[in-house]
Amino acid sequence: MGYGSQAGHRPVCRGAHRVSFTLLWIPATILASLLQTARNLTQRSLTDVIGVVGATQVRFLFGLPFAVLFLVVVCLVADRLPPSIDLTVFGYTVAGALTQIAATALMLAAMRERSFAVTTAYTKTEPVQVAIFGALLLGDALTPGKFAAIAIATFGVVLVSWKPGEKLSRAGLRPAVLGVGAGAFFALSAIGYRGAIQALPDGGFFIRATTILAFGLALQTLVLTVYMLVANRAALMSSLRNWRRSLSAGFLGAAASQCWFIGFSLTSAANVRTLALIEVPLAQIASRRIFAEGTSWRELIGMALIVGGVGLLLMLALR
């Protein structure tokens, strides 16, 4: 018995009751955004202590035990083994795992040069990219209304990140390139993981999402641990010495990914990543309260556009 149907969209029959999980992607994505904002803050604080690669590795190495625990619990409740992983699932998961590593490293590198909020805004150019990739690679539907919602929200992101009068120098361009590059790799990662979840041969949406989460984190942990043992053992040892903060980042990362993957199993990656733009206002709030980074009127207008675009997307999704 699984959680939901094979596709995750059809209702589940239980006696005289029919329960639909179709719109569960909305609260799952909102929770994922909250958890990811908290994880990014934790990783940013670790960057100064153990470096970019060390902080990148933390979310995977220390997140894997939690992902495995999630999978064990789901299998026990569902009374079944995880779905089998074939070459197609393996390929999609490898693509999602490796591009997520690259995205996280680029994001943390950008955060060392620009504010937490602005870097978050740069990475959130992702939805337009993920919508196009999803339509081309997975056949996800992209209606004119949905594309308009994505475009409005993304323009809000650009408005938040752009500073009037700022000269386009190499120093100013570098964090922008890093942030937008991170957004591109996050887009490819979302497509890879959604493709892997869809390619699993059986199981409900919950067990398929949790299976890919555990498998993806295992691959990422293996790749980064081997790399750091060879190239940066000091950062690996430092992350182990700072195990309390590392464990917090790992748990927040695993919990956020669990919610992201539930969203990917129920709707297109473009829908999930556009709703996830609520992270930009969350990052602004965090910047003001934690890092004493101010917010201008231009940034407030940009955030209003983000909220408006997200609101339009939800209206279309709820029809």
Rank of each mutant, 00 (worst) to 15 (best):
A148L: 15
I152F: 03
M1I: 10
G165A: 06
F185G: 05
I290T: 10
L168Y: 06
I197H: 02
L300N: 13
K163C: 01
P83V: 07
T29I: 06
R18Q: 15
Q129M: 13
S265I: 01
L312P: 00
L41G: 12
A286N: 00
S115C: 08
I301A: 13
A187Y: 01
R208F: 03
S287Q: 05
T56P: 03
N232L: 06
V223R: 06
V230A: 14
W243C: 03
A214N: 05
T42E: 13
S265L: 02
G192F: 02
A292R: 15
R208E: 01
L229A: 12
L200R: 02
A209Q: 04
L61W: 04
W297N: 14
L64I: 05
V180N: 03
P164T: 13
L168G: 02
A78L: 05
C259V: 01
R208T: 01
A149K: 02
H9C: 04
E293L: 06
A276M: 12
E293A: 12
R241T: 14
G309I: 04
S287C: 08
L108I: 11
G195P: 06
A214I: 08
F66Y: 11
A135G: 14
A16C: 10
S169L: 12
F251I: 09
L200E: 05
V12N: 02
L300T: 15
V307W: 06
